[in-house]
Amino acid sequence: MKLQTEIPLKPEEDHIDYSSKIVLLGSCFSENIGAKFDWFKFQNLQNPFGIIFNPVSIENLIARAIANENFSEKDIFEHNGIWKCFETHSELASLDKAEFLQKLNNALLELRNWLYSATHIIFTFGTSWVYREIKENEIVANCHKLPQKNFKKELLSIEAISKSLQTIFDKISAINPKATIINTVSPVRHIKDGFVENSLSKAHLLSALHETTHQLSTKNHQLKYFPSYEIMMDELRDYRFYSEDMLHPNKTAVEIIWQKFSKVWIASETEALQKEIASIQNGLKHKPFNPESAEHFQFLETLQKKTNLVQEKFPHIKF
């Protein structure tokens, strides 16, 4: 008896290998998968502006990066002595104005360079709910704990999301037509919006993604969809796959989704190297009982030899 439904998956053609350059943008699930790319030392850039949940804010950053439109003083504000920007996550905030602008523009240049050279761009969209800053009438990526009265909450329509997605895909295709774009919907439920409201939000994202992908498939866009949301909701529906908040996938769930992603998107030829890198990574985390023992020095020498062999073949890999 089979006690679990399973999402049918098949390997894609444009595989990720150790020559690939991967950009990950979107919700916190981007960072879950990005952490796996980091661990196995794939070349990747993760959320240079922090976690961004909604497609309009992701569109704004993509457009700004491609247009090379630097952040200026009009794009930032001070709140409780800290400089912030409505287009980015609070993790970039700074006490120094000049330092903050420099940080934003460095991240912008980094994103621009990666968008031009990426082989794979992975978007994880989290929610259709957005907050509009009333004074400027602009959708923000983060409210930065400003008073609620400063914002109006609204649900993006399927049409509005489709329009943002089309802009994102068209702009990337114009500068990097060979890049494969992998879209997914975050399996993290935004229950603070409400249970029904969360379902509606995810439905809008899914409808817009599939509609836009279908419409643009005739325009030579390399658009793909990976069902991380569906895997979590159907295959991993048991609460043993959730963290303590009962909303986020736990370590086991992330590992399962990563394995499924790997089967679809990561070249099988990389498996031996991934195992070797994992061995090195675990070795680097090892804490000896006696750091001065001959056994430990022998262990370090063997580990260094393994590291050197990997770096000789792939100079971009750093431990």
Score class of each variant (00 low, 15 high):
M1P: 04
L9A: 04
E12N: 12
H15E: 13
D17T: 02
I22K: 01
I22M: 03
L24G: 10
L24W: 03
L25G: 11
F29S: 08
E31N: 15
N32V: 06
N32I: 04
G34R: 02
A35V: 00
A35F: 01
W39D: 07
F40T: 11
Q46L: 14
E59A: 13
E59F: 13
N60M: 15
L61E: 01
L61T: 00
L61W: 00
A63E: 15
R64T: 11
R64I: 06
I66Q: 13
N70W: 02
D75S: 10
E78V: 13
W83G: 11
W83F: 15
T88L: 01
L92M: 14
S94N: 15
D96M: 06
D96L: 07
A98I: 13
E99W: 04
E99C: 09
F100Q: 04
Q102M: 06
Q102H: 08
L104R: 07
N106H: 12
L108A: 03
L108V: 00
L108K: 07
E110L: 14
R112L: 01
N113A: 07
N113I: 05
W114N: 07
L115N: 03
Y116P: 01
S117D: 00
I121S: 02
F125I: 02
T127V: 10
S128V: 06
V130W: 11
V130G: 05
Y131G: 03
K135W: 00
K135P: 00
N137S: 12
N137F: 06
I139Q: 02
H144L: 11
H144A: 14
H144N: 10
L146W: 07
N150E: 15
E154F: 13
A160H: 12
S162R: 10
I168R: 02
F169Q: 01
D170R: 09
I172F: 07
S173I: 08
A174G: 04
I175P: 03
N176A: 12
P177C: 01
P177N: 04
P177I: 00
K178E: 10
I181G: 02
T184N: 04
V185G: 05
S186Q: 12
R189S: 06
D193I: 11
N198F: 03
S207N: 08
L209T: 09
H210K: 05
E211C: 01
K219T: 12
K219Y: 12
N220E: 09
H221C: 09
Y225E: 05
F226P: 02
P227G: 04
I231C: 06
I231V: 14
I231H: 04
D234K: 07
Y239W: 11
Y239N: 14
H248R: 14
H248C: 14
P249T: 05
T252Q: 13
E255F: 03
I256Q: 06
W258Y: 15
Q259C: 10
S262F: 08
W265C: 10
E269Y: 08
T270Y: 07
E276R: 13
E276H: 09
I277K: 05
A278F: 13
I280N: 09
N282H: 10
L284M: 14
K285Q: 14
H286E: 03
K287M: 09
K287A: 08
F289R: 05
N290F: 13
E292F: 09
E295N: 12
Q298R: 11
E301G: 00
E301M: 00
Q304W: 11
L309Y: 10
V310T: 08
Q311V: 11
K313Q: 15
F314V: 01
I317P: 05
K318N: 14
